[in-house]
Amino acid sequence: MEFNEMKDSVLKQILSKQLIQATISQPRAKSNEIKRIKLKPIEIKNMYHIQLEYQYERILKHENIRIEEFSSAWEKLLDDFRQIHVDFIEEKIQIQLSKKNKVMYKTEKNTSLKQVDLSHNRKKNYLLDEHTPYPFLIRLGVQTSEGKVKKQKYDKFKQINRFIEFIDDTLAYLPKDKTVRILDFGSGKSYLTFALYHYLKIEKGLDIRVTGLDLKKEVIEECSQIAKDLDYDDLEFLVGDINDYNDETAVDMVVTLHACDVATDMALARAVKWNASVILSVPCCQHELNRQLDAPGLNIMLKHGLIKERFSALATDSIRAEILNLVGYEAQLVEFIDIENTPKNILIRAYKTGGKPTHEQIEGYEQFKEMLNAQPFLENELKEYLNID
């Protein structure tokens, strides 16, 4: 299919009010601060609009465009981005554009029978409905046996749903022709591990096999029993840590939540070496850079212990994301949960693209590292993948 034919065909369905949702991603320009745009139809004052949700590194912005005025916006979107996933009422479309607008176009019948939801001013629409009983949430004590979210667990329920939103965003990057292999390092009480399994296996019907790994034997035993009680046959929990686990040669998704200090880097390095398509990591207790920092130009900040600690954490995660960008991933730092609930609220989200870094990217990374006197553990772990002198 030619570019103009594709452009007109998709636009025609949108203008015919067939759109359920769409995601536009892969900015053509590295300087584009917008990383992803989500589209959905809404009704405002009895008038049909297309809502554009612009996803930046740390914030979301919204724009509502009347359908009669959408054509020009559609042209601009195709000029700035290269990947499009669209759900229409009767079909799903995946489009990949080359630099010269050569079109890779896939379509399949939409069997989910979704209806267009035009509601706008409504309560938060969670992927897990707060009025529906879920066996794993009941078993974990988040819901009552009747399916009502317990008041003291509502923040946990929101966290679980926020995590599932990230999982939902990964679907386009996971393999479709084999069992999807997922590892969760430091799974702990495993609220999110169970949520991931439920959403991908039960809600989405994917062929997956999930392993949760943690050092606490009693926690692993409890989680294993819960998985057995729920008949989660493709979910297992093992005692061990990142350094001990050598049972895999390839993994599709690696999740690591609150792995302390360089344990996060170990998990990220393992994910890269396994050629993982998706990495989701919430770091914790970043001490490495705090010990190394030697930046006289920042002394006004760094003489304050609290500020130095927070700066070190932010700089560490920025370095981690940039290293992932340099070894062929599209990495972003996004807010995982409201900061009033936990200060450990940054999630590193990375998708395997196979892209090669530019000279400017490598130079920028080196300058930042030199400014801080940083010697990143993750860089050393991935030195064979980095073309850095």
Score class of each variant (00 low, 15 high):
Arg36Gln: 14
Arg66Glu: 13
Leu215Glu: 05
Met1Lys: 11
Tyr134Cys: 04
Phe157Ser: 13
Asn290Val: 00
Met104Cys: 15
Val239Ala: 05
Val255Leu: 01
Ile67Ser: 10
Ile89Cys: 08
Thr23Arg: 13
Glu130Arg: 14
Phe185Tyr: 14
Asp231Gly: 07
Arg139Asp: 07
Pro357Phe: 07
Lys100Cys: 03
Ile20Gly: 04
Glu222Ala: 03
Phe166Pro: 11
Gln159Thr: 07
Tyr154Ile: 10
Gln55Asp: 15
Leu347Ala: 15
Glu379His: 04
Asn32Asp: 12
Val210Pro: 00
Met6Ser: 06
Val86His: 09
Asp231Met: 07
Ile182Gln: 02
Glu165Asn: 13
Ile59Pro: 01
Asp184Arg: 02
Leu19Phe: 08
Met1Tyr: 08
Ile42Thr: 12
Ile95Ala: 14
Leu78His: 13
Asp389Lys: 15
Pro376Glu: 10
Trp274Gln: 01
Ala321Ser: 12
Ile348Cys: 08
Val255Asn: 00
Lys35Glu: 11
Asp294Glu: 13
Ser112Ala: 14
Tyr54Leu: 13
Ala195Ile: 03
Ile65Ala: 10
Glu370Thr: 15
Leu19Ile: 09
Glu288Asn: 01
Ala269Phe: 06
Phe163Cys: 10
Glu75Gly: 09
Asn4Ala: 09
Ala271Met: 12
Thr193Pro: 01
Glu384Ile: 11
Asp177Met: 02
Thr179Asn: 00
Leu293Gln: 06
Glu69Asn: 14
Pro357Trp: 08
Lys30Thr: 06
Pro27Asp: 08
Leu127Glu: 01
Glu130Asp: 15
Leu268Met: 05
Phe237Met: 04
Asn46Ser: 15
Gln96Arg: 13
Lys201Ile: 00
Pro296Met: 07
His131Asp: 11
Asn380Ile: 02
Asn387Ala: 13
Lys102Met: 13
Gln286Lys: 02
Ala227Cys: 06
Ile24Val: 13
Lys38Leu: 09
Tyr245Glu: 11
Lys45Tyr: 08
Ser112Asp: 14
Ile202Tyr: 06
Ile95His: 08
Gly212Asn: 02
Leu128His: 02
Val254Pro: 03
Val255Pro: 01
Cys285Met: 03
Gln152Val: 13
Gln26Gly: 08
Leu206Met: 12
Ser318Cys: 14
Leu39Gly: 13
Cys260Leu: 00
Gly305His: 07
Gly328Thr: 15
Tyr126Glu: 10
Tyr245Arg: 06
Tyr54Arg: 14
Gly328Tyr: 11
Leu39Pro: 05
Gly186Glu: 03
Ala315Leu: 09
Val334Asn: 13
Val10Asn: 10
Pro27Met: 10
Gly141Asp: 10
Val116Trp: 08
Asn243Cys: 06
Tyr191Gly: 05
Lys109Thr: 15
Asp184Pro: 03
Leu192Met: 05
Phe157Gly: 12
Ala374Val: 00
Asn243Trp: 04
Glu53Gly: 12
Leu257Thr: 04
Asp244Val: 01
Glu218Tyr: 01
Leu52Thr: 04
Leu192Gln: 04
Ala331Gly: 12
